[in-house]
Amino acid sequence: MAFRPLGRRAYGSIPHLPGSRTGPADRHLSPALARTLTQRARDARDHVVVLEKLDGSCVAAARVGDSLLALGREGQLAAHSANEARRLWATWVARHAERFLAVLRPGERVVGEWLALAHGTRYALPHEPFVAFDLMRDEARSPWREVTERLGNAGFVLPGLVHEGAPLAVEAVMERLGGAGFHGALDPVEGAVWRLERRDAQGVRVELLAKYVRPDKVDGSLLPENSGRPAHWNWRPEAPPPPPEMS
């Protein structure tokens, strides 16, 4: 089994809303919870945040003591990956280590979308190639306000905010996103992510996430192994990192 420094995946799977394009391993959110996100809140303590869903590689930067680890979604070290884009992520984290360490407390990780390599959507990025969408400790997520205050104030790019407050229907969200969304998409925006937060006596907790992917979306359609064409890079430094040494 491949080594996972955290002993777990860096990020889990998110269920789909009704009508979302799914793959064989995907699952749908229950109809009742889907209505809570898109139609009617259970009560005044529900709070919905809707963000643009980006189409890249899910990655993480985790602080373990005073060390910083660049990870893939599965929890393995990105620097040891055979995938060039993952190795670029590890190099980028190392170059921006001070920024990450200034935000992350020991045991925390920031998770986001690494947009260097186009998977199914090309971007004319108006910002750096990493977009942070979660701040986590173990399996617990920080509320969106904390994410924006800590990561946004530190200069990290966050997903475009489509809506915040009451539930909002999929059709309304996709209409607001339009064609290019907030991050310079050159192809139709993939979809959106709904976050359901709940206020209680202890504060605010993230109860669940769900996503909608447009039905005609094809995962990885621009990757060379699928397209038969050269890779399309949304961002790439002049000198990419070398491949890992073979043992």
Rank of each mutant, 00 (worst) to 15 (best):
S57N: 09
F100C: 05
R214T: 05
D43N: 13
V111Y: 13
A32I: 11
V111F: 08
A201M: 10
G75F: 08
L151D: 02
R195W: 14
R145T: 15
E164C: 00
V193P: 03
H127F: 09
E128L: 03
R87H: 05
E98R: 09
R176V: 08
E108H: 14
S67M: 00
R8D: 14
W194A: 01
V173T: 15
A124R: 13
L151N: 14
H80R: 15
S221M: 00
R40A: 07
L151R: 11
L101Q: 06
A41N: 08
L168S: 07
P15G: 06
R86W: 04
E52K: 01
V111S: 10
G120L: 05
A172S: 13
P15Q: 01
V50A: 08
Y11I: 05
G23I: 09
L33T: 12
G178Y: 02
A25C: 01
F130E: 02
W144K: 00
A25T: 11
V170P: 00
T38Q: 09
R141W: 06
E245P: 14
E164F: 07
L135Q: 13
H119T: 14
V162P: 02
P230C: 00
A90P: 12
A239N: 06
R141Y: 12
G65N: 09
G178P: 14
A97I: 05
R229M: 07
L88N: 03
L71W: 03
V64R: 07
Y123A: 10
L77G: 08
E128W: 06
E238T: 09
A94W: 02
R214C: 12
D200A: 13
P244Y: 05
R27E: 11
A210S: 12
